[in-house]
Design a protein around this nucleic acid. Structure first.
Lengths: 172, 172
DNA sequence: AGATACATGTAACATGTTACATGATTTA
DNA sequence: TAAATCATGTAACATGTTACATGTATCT
């Protein structure tokens, strides 16, 4: 049920339409909690039916601008403070590593070396993102920066691990 | 479609029944690709229908021991070498961090400090696991060890990050 | 006038979780 | 013989993806 809390969280910052939220997901939440247009629109209707958000204004082209209700703000706060995050396991990368014994050592080495290169690229992309963001707007900036730092440390850790693993497997 | 490849990978090591596989998922793959009993049995039927596995022997209590077919081994190898892992994003932890501005600084600090403690516990659990495993049986051992090393580095990275983040937010 | 961006919605399908249902064999 | 373990399966529901469908407003 995290999608609904992602929507509540974004709407806590400012009112927005489904279309606005879709773009926010594609930019700020893309690396944290991706969601599709289809999911967003139907979840917004459920949230409105549950009274956690409400249409604050209607605009051109059928635009419905949603805002958090008091119940919605309470629910967001409750989720943040009272519920435990169900840490998500499931790593397709690790699943493959588990079964690398099924292919040759050389192929396994190349796979791991390729991973290292991918992670290095990801690291670079995050560093570019870091430079492109304006880090001067309050809370969202403080915690967005902390979330980005996680991504940076994560990509470095994975690159170093993949390099180490490739070495373990050996080139031949 | 990774569940099917997880099953193929386990069956590549040795033939097994759904029940055997269920236990393998709960032990060796629990931290990599969890699956439920319900999922495993229905996927085994689909894999058998697709000709990637076959019933090699039937035992007591309706036990069906499955083994990889040649087509299954090819598919596993194809998956390992020719397809790209769709890296899984989606971190409920990071989603919460993103919205910590909605609660007080003190509450946010406590949340991050609590995360650091959780990650420290996870690290300890993995180190216990490392000690309890017999690392002397070939491929599964080599690559299982590499996967575990990922988990160890990951838990350390997250603990250090959470400690850093708690400090950033400040205790008051 | 045509292209692009804005804006919302539904349908079909795949994947994943929880709970229910049933029965056989082994062990204490 | 009672409990635990072995063993498989189905049903209901939640979540997530892709594709289809429709129409309006703005910009060039």
């Amino acid at each position: 049920m995290s999608l609904r809390h992602a929507l509540l969280g974004l709407l806590a910052d400012r009112p927005a339409s489904g279309y606005d939220l879709l773009k926010l997901f594609d930019t700020s939440l893309a690396n944290v909690w991706p969601a599709t247009q289809s999911q967003i629109y139907s979840e917004l209707n459920k949230l409105a039916a549950a009274g956690l958000i409400a249409v604050a204004a209607e605009g051109a082209r059928g635009r419905k601008q949603y805002a958090l209700t008091d119940a919605g703000r309470d629910e967001l706060s409750r989720w943040l403070t009272e519920t435990d995050p169900a840490r998500n396991h499931r790593s397709e990368v690790l699943l493959r590593v588990f079964f690398l014994g099924e292919i040759s050592r050389a192929q396994a080495h190349d796979y791991l070396a390729g991973l290292a290169a991918d992670f290095a690229k990801e690291d670079q992309a995050l560093r570019d993102l870091e430079r492109s963001v304006d880090w001067d707007d309050g809370n969202l900036s403080v915690y967005g920066r902390i979330a980005l730092e996680y991504g940076l440390r994560f990509s470095v850790m994975r690159r170093e691990w993949a390099e180490w693993a490739a070495e373990q497997v050996g080139e031949q």
